[in-house]
């Protein structure tokens, strides 16, 4: 896998730091069900479907964007960290990166299939939410483990 569009090495540490901090904040938000009220703002929604209300299209809605902002920051920082170059990039590192990516995809869908069989109703919604990030997180974990094992 000889990709030429990996991000530069110099952003690795900063993106990793932001990723960890924001991921912890996201987990805290989900577990404690807490959002800062200052972020209740009107947002333009292409589709909005609130509980026990009609679905609306292309409308302004009042919503708290804390969760949305955190999720976007986690995704962007995760991608920057995961797909930035190592200090020394060579073909073996590229090979390890590809192996980790394939493993992460397989693992992610294996977990999802298990969840489909054993988790239902509103609890499954949480599974889908976690599934937004699980491939990325698994890839980061597998790749870092490969790098540590060859040092």
């Amino acid at each position: 896998m000889n990709l030429t569009y990996l991000f530069p090495y110099r952003i690795k540490k900063l993106s990793g730091f932001i990723f960890i901090i924001c991921f912890c904040a996201l987990l805290t938000t989900v577990l404690l069900d807490w959002v800062p009220f200052i972020l209740d703002v009107p947002m333009f929604a292409i589709v909005s479907s609130e509980f026990l209300k009609d679905t609306t299209y292309f409308s302004w809605i009042e919503t708290n964007i804390w969760y949305d902002v955190l999720t976007i920051v986690v995704i962007i920082s995760g991608i920057l960290f995961a797909f930035s170059k190592e200090k020394i990039e060579d073909e073996y590192i590229s090979n390890l990166r590809l192996k980790a990516l394939v493993k992460a995809v397989y693992c992610n869908y294996a977990i999802l299939i298990l969840a489909i069989f054993f988790i239902y109703n509103l609890a499954f919604f949480n599974v889908l939410v976690l599934n937004m990030l699980s491939t990325l997180i698994l890839f980061i974990l597998f790749f870092q483990r490969e790098l540590i094992s060859v040092k």
Binding site: I88, D90, E91, Y92, I93, N95, V150, K151
Partner: peptide, 15 residues
Amino acid sequence: EVTRQTINAIELEKY
């Protein structure tokens, strides 16, 4: 122009 780990992996026939 590769890492030491790459040479090691080649010698061990892992890569």
